[in-house]
Nucleic acid binder design. Structure first.
Lengths: 84, 84
DNA sequence: TATATATTTAGATAAATATCTAAATATTAA
DNA sequence: TTAATATTTAGATATTTATCTAAATATATA
């Protein structure tokens, strides 16, 4: 749960999730949307992966990232619980 | 929105919110639940306040903190939007 | 097989954050 | 008005995090 919150606490990572909302993208596609180096984006993707917010599959040279909304249920539950 | 996510990214602050779920508490009451100095807790409370997650009222010498769940609607919306 | 492309990993650095102690402020009570 | 209590503010420090460049790994293609 901490990894999830930590993951969502960075604006770049939240924007990555927005990009992945509509379609799966390669690491390069994602990186090209930001004015940040590829290794940095790769690091953000790694954190998103570790927290369960994205998953990745290889297609040849490319790594396709996709959003995983299942884990967001936990967040919803946490929020609901806090609201009583 | 960033302040909200940042606020929720720290485990101590999330635990503070859990404490405030049931009842309003003074800064001292909150601090006594943790093995962290009062100034540090005061700092966490300040961040929670700035993000809109808690509000505070004075009663004599005491400052009572209470949870504000209204702002959590924004978070719910953000999550829902991400899920489409 | 050698080279090009896509991406990550490693290692360093700078910025942000959590924490501490000491001092300041606000209120109450003697 | 002085002393006690509650809490914050100030300033310093250590840890975490975001970022960078350079090097390594994986796959595809000439």
């Amino acid at each position: 749960m901490n990894a999830l919150f930590k993951s969502l606490s960075d604006p770049t990572r939240r924007e990555i999730l927005q990009l992945l909302k509509d379609t799966d993208l390669t690491a390069g596609d994602i990186a090209s949307h930001f004015d940040i180096s590829k290794p940095s984006i790769s690091h953000h993707l790694d954190l998103l992966k570790r927290s369960g917010l994205v998953s990745v599959r290889r297609d040849g040279q490319f790594l396709y990232y996709s959003i995983n909304t299942t884990i967001l249920e936990d967040l919803m539950q946490w929020v609901m619980n806090l609201k009583h």
